[in-house]
């Protein structure tokens, strides 16, 4: 299967690979997928409690090139966004940006799930629910 330039660029030079201390209260961690399904993403955000802005993001992914590229792109997009704006990131935008083929759309869905799971984890840790539409956290 031919891969787009964008996928190859993120795969070869992934942005923001790494880990934060999951116990830190300013950190939200989303771990989605399953090893037996062939992809697992862990996406972490560091949130400024005052402003509600995501100041940093990191990921580690077990998966194909498209899964790695989707999570790499997600960390780039998350940085500087408010939690509210981050919740608005849609998998279809990832599909478009990376030119994912139809068979790889599930990678973008997983990235969206990871974003929401990380935000929810941060909110749960800090007992925040206001303003954020938590009902949309239910993943597909």
């Amino acid at each position: 299967m031919p891969y787009s330039e964008q996928i190859l660029e993120h795969y070869n030079n992934p942005r923001n690979v790494g880990s934060f201390d999951a116990k830190d209260p300013t950190i939200g961690t989303g771990l989605v997928g399953a090893p037996e399904c062939g992809d697992v993403m862990r996406l972490q955000i560091r949130v400024n409690a005052e402003t509600g802005i995501i100041e940093d993001a990191k990921f580690k992914t077990f998966g194909c090139g498209s899964a790695i590229a989707s999570s790499s792109l997600a960390t780039e997009w998350l940085k500087g966004k408010t939690l509210e704006d981050a919740m608005e990131i849609k998998n279809t935008e990832i599909v478009e940006e990376l030119a994912l083929p139809p068979v790889k759309v599930h990678c973008s869905v997983l990235a969206e799930d990871a974003i929401r799971a990380a935000i929810k984890n941060y909110q749960d840790k800090n007992e925040l629910t206001a303003d954020i539409r938590t009902e949309s956290l239910v993943t597909a």
Binding site: S19, P35, K60, T61
Partner: peptide
């Protein structure tokens, strides 16, 4: 492997089978 959350967890001594993965 440096990019894999599973590798990091295994290195930290976490049994990957003990995690409730959400199959998708």
């Amino acid at each position: 492997r440096e990019m894999s959350p599973l590798y990091e967890m295994a290195q930290a001594g976490i049994d990957l089978k003990s995690i409730a993965w959400a199959a998708h």
